[in-house]
Design a binder for these strands. Structure first.
Lengths: 204, 204
DNA sequence: AAAATAAAAACGAACGTTCGTTCTTATATT
DNA sequence: AATATAAGAACGAACGTTCGTTTTTATTTT
């Protein structure tokens, strides 16, 4: 008598609504997406949605939480193996980019929230995730002896910033006409970061 | 009789409409901003707008072009002084962050466009700016002898990425509750970048 | 197992409101 | 006098939400 493997009818359409809404929000933004579009895409009538969600905003709230990429990214960073700082960075960067790469919708979703809900009291992606992400800074403190005495927070922030920007530009380059900007390799970025923070010593 | 210093009445209200629209788009996004709000903020009646702009979209197009931050950033990067690569990077980073800091609306405006107009054929900020930005890569090629043999494009992209992410996180941290993340200093980022790309040698 | 009852879910028309745009009329500007 | 601009009422379409009702699913009673 464990958790039922089969979802109830209600639960299934609830999921369908959220998935449809997620796609539309990512494609068009929040305000430009209508309840009718959501209903059509989810395959039910307009009024039926309101058996599962009280308002349009509540759908967005739940989508934000459910499709939060840190559900995948945080554990990956937390568990990235590596005896040395270098090994950790190489593994962590690769895993993080790989996980994010599976979620090309993430940036759009984050931007939609930033653009259309900033200032309103909504479950904020960044605010809700910072408490989760912050403990990861320990992984940048316990190998201090190999580094050039940079503050752990700066280490962490530059790590996230550099590789997030790699992910973001990679995403943007895909949507560019022609290859104005040649795609790069992640290894180059890892290389730059490691040379940037490690004490002068041999690198692999 | 050169260009008139005094703007005609029409030109002045035209500017007022654009400024009002810009503020509202940045605050609320495009779809969530109504023509009536724009009219109110610009201080004229709804119908009056249509003497100057044919559609709401046309207002957005012109706002995008007029408020494009690269009008300030590109020249700054192009002219950043520096005999050595290190001096150039230090000056360029500082100037770029300073210029962007004067335009906290930029990120929002870029995101609004990305979120609400991607796919539609509009004057795209990134697409129109890449041709302008691309020539700047030469500043990363003519000092190759000081560097560790990294491809110029990778140099450039990691430079932009690292410092743009610095700017963006600085922007986000301001809108954060409390100081979950301590603010950093730009110098740390410059330091990391320089160690990351320079050949092993003394740094200032 | 069958029948009766309750609960959940789906429907689609209709509500009042707001949207972008157009139109007509009045007022400044030149 | 001619032109450009402002005003604001009017338009139909679309918006999010509510409504009463029907249909489906689940639970209880025989």
């Amino acid at each position: 008598m464990t958790k039922p493997e089969t979802f109830s009818k209600g639960e299934r359409t609830r999921q369908a609504v959220m998935e449809a809404a997620h796609q539309l929000f990512v494609d068009q933004g929040y305000a430009a997406t209508s309840m009718r579009q959501i209903a059509d895409k989810a395959g039910l009538a307009l009024g039926g949605i309101y058996n599962h969600f009280p308002t349009k905003e509540s759908i967005f709230s739940e989508v934000i939480v459910a499709y939060h990429p840190f559900h995948q990214v945080v554990p990956v960073l937390k568990a990235a193996p590596g005896d040395t700082f270098e090994a950790f960075v190489r593994n962590a960067a690769k895993s993080m980019i790989a996980e994010l790469g599976r979620r090309p919708d993430f940036i759009k979703l984050m931007f939609v929230e930033l653009v259309e809900f900033e200032g309103k009291n909504m479950p904020n992606m960044l605010q809700t995730i910072f408490p989760q992400v912050l403990p990861l800074v320990v992984r940048f403190t316990d190998k201090q002896d190999e580094l050039r005495g940079i503050q752990p927070f700066v280490l962490f922030r530059s790590f996230l910033g550099l590789f997030f920007s790699y992910y973001m530009t990679e995403f943007l380059l895909v949507n560019m006409p022609a290859n104005l900007f040649p795609k790069g390799s992640l290894d180059d970025f890892v290389d730059i970061y490691l040379h940037g923070v490690l004490a002068q010593k041999e690198l692999i």
